[in-house]
């Protein structure tokens, strides 16, 4: 049985969790992982690549959206018709 490293997973998943909730999730997720571990008993080989799947490629076309204003209306931070994003890291001297 595997035990989850909840703080590590929360960081990977970009989730800020209060300690209390993280502890709660630890218990619940361990139970779920214990359940799905039963798959190890299933008798099945690795998936083949000829399972009837095919690539579907969309036509590569440029579309102009007439409703830019409606789209930007839902954006939390905008400036000059652009989406504002905070710096990836302030340590690198970028400003927000």
């Amino acid at each position: 049985m595997s035990t989850l490293n909840v703080p590590h997973l929360a960081r990977l998943a970009r989730l800020a969790l209060p300690e209390e909730r993280a502890a709660h999730l630890q218990t619940q997720l361990d139970g779920v992982v214990q359940y799905v571990d039963k798959l190890a008993q299933a008798n099945a080989g690795m998936p083949s690549h000829d399972a009837g799947l095919q690539n579907v490629v969309a036509v590569d076309e440029v579309h102009h959206f007439p409703n830019t204003a409606a789209i930007l209306a839902g954006v939390p931070r905008t400036a000059n018709n652009l989406i504002m994003v905070r710096a990836v890291s302030l340590d690198e001297g970028a400003s927000a």
Partner: peptide, 13 residues
């Protein structure tokens, strides 16, 4: 939020 990670993580949390 003071950087991008915090915007993501605090919003999603």
């Amino acid at each position: 939020a003071h950087d991008l990670f915090e915007t993501y993580a605090k919003t999603r949390g």
